[in-house]
């Protein structure tokens, strides 16, 4: 079958035509306004199905243990919360935070990947995702790569990320 191909000069006009057409005829998804405050896990305790709610309550117990300096207990509780709901993004986020700041930052970054995949559509977690990634990269000796993430975290949540750290209490 013979095919007519546009010349390079024609293509910009055609593209403009289609853009205009698309603008009047299509309505894309509404942009979500940037959230005012980063997520606090205690406010999510009642959301989701039964397994998610139970998992979330166990994460909160883990954060309590973390706050008291009982890292091993906290880590074990985060793992228990994943036993109930392995797709709970906040359990992965809490585990990532703990590993980055108190354990193995490499492992923390891997956990953060998991949290990020599950939280991709959640603006309220963006500051923490960026901040923990920045802190993790800094901890594994990549300060150059860390800085843009930390900057993003500071811009999104200056009150929480001004010091480049996130305590368990601040996530709770």
């Amino acid at each position: 079958m013979a095919r007519t191909t546009l010349t390079g000069r024609q293509r910009p006009f055609v593209a403009l035509f289609f853009l205009a057409f698309a603008a009047v005829s299509c309505r894309g998804p509404a942009l979500r306004p940037p959230s005012g405050e980063p997520v606090r896990l205690s406010r999510l305790a009642g959301s989701g199905d039964a397994a998610r709610r139970a998992s979330q309550r166990i994460v909160l117990s883990g954060l309590d243990a973390d706050q008291r300096g009982r890292s091993a207990e906290a880590s074990s509780l985060y793992e228990r919360s994943l036993q109930v709901d392995p797709t709970n993004p906040y359990a992965w986020l809490a585990l990532a935070r703990q590993e980055v700041f108190e354990g193995d930052p490499d492992r923390g970054l891997a956990h953060l990947d998991k949290a990020e995949a599950l939280l991709a559509a959640d603006d309220t977690a963006a500051a923490h995702l960026a901040g923990i990634r920045g802190a993790g990269l800094r901890a594994v000796g990549q300060p150059g790569m860390a800085e843009p993430f930390l900057r993003e975290a500071r811009e999104r949540a200056p009150a929480l990320w001004a010091d480049g750290k996130l305590d368990a209490a601040e996530l709770r």
Partner: peptide, 8 residues
């Protein structure tokens, strides 16, 4: 361990 919770 077995974990008991509301909704189980």
């Amino acid at each position: 361990p077995i974990i008991l919770y509301p909704g189980l």
